[in-house]
Design a binder for these strands. Sequence first.
DNA 1: CGATTTTGACCAGCGC
DNA 2: GCGCTGGTCAAAATCG
Length: 220
Amino acid sequence: MSTTNIVNHHSLFDQEQDHEIPMQMGFNIPFPPNMTLPPLDNCHHQSLKAVQKTREFDDHLTSSFGGGGQLLSLNRSKVNSWAWGEVTGSLIGKRSSGGDDQHHHHHNQQLGVSAIKMKKMKGRRKVREPRFCFKTMSDVDVLDDGYKWRKYGQKVVKNTQHPRSYYRCTQDNCRVKKRVERLAEDPRMVITTYEGRHAHSPSNELEESQTQSELTNFFW
DNA sequence: CGATTTTGACCAGCGC
DNA sequence: GCGCTGGTCAAAATCG
């Protein structure tokens, strides 16, 4: 059961016009998909407010959806995403974490880079990549979001029972990553965190239902 | 046999 | 500096 809870969310969104949703939800961040610009901080807050207004989220942006919806919360980090890469847009320095990331993450995160890549990346600056996560009640860990992912790591994080899995988009030149873990306090919950934006479409030829594609557009 | 997962090693950042 | 931690690599194992 609950193969893709995400499908259930559709019922909540379908009355909305497709092109309206991303703006309202704030995930359509006004910077190009090649991620040369940071996910502007101020955009963050406004989006959340928009979410509340539009979707009647509560103050903590946590809410149960009706009709069997299982997306319980949405969260978007404004300062905790970091990456290495070329910078063609605005540069940003490191800023302190505002503690706005997932409540279950008690600290700032920085991306690790391999030694080889490190050499290549020498001299380049840090750029933040957009990141957001959501909590889902689900039996399956990996929700089908229309993209293809390859697992590249698994780690047991401190103070948690369940390991965290790391995935990368299989598309060439797409460095979007996601990680999946179960909430320690409630193992029924799956936390999915996306990092970066796809510079391509899901390209999931078959079995991409309309529900899924709509949701895909909605999120990323 | 190519694609993907598994898994320990390795690395950078951080706090002390 | 040292140890801890989370993120990534990469070789081997496994899958389809």
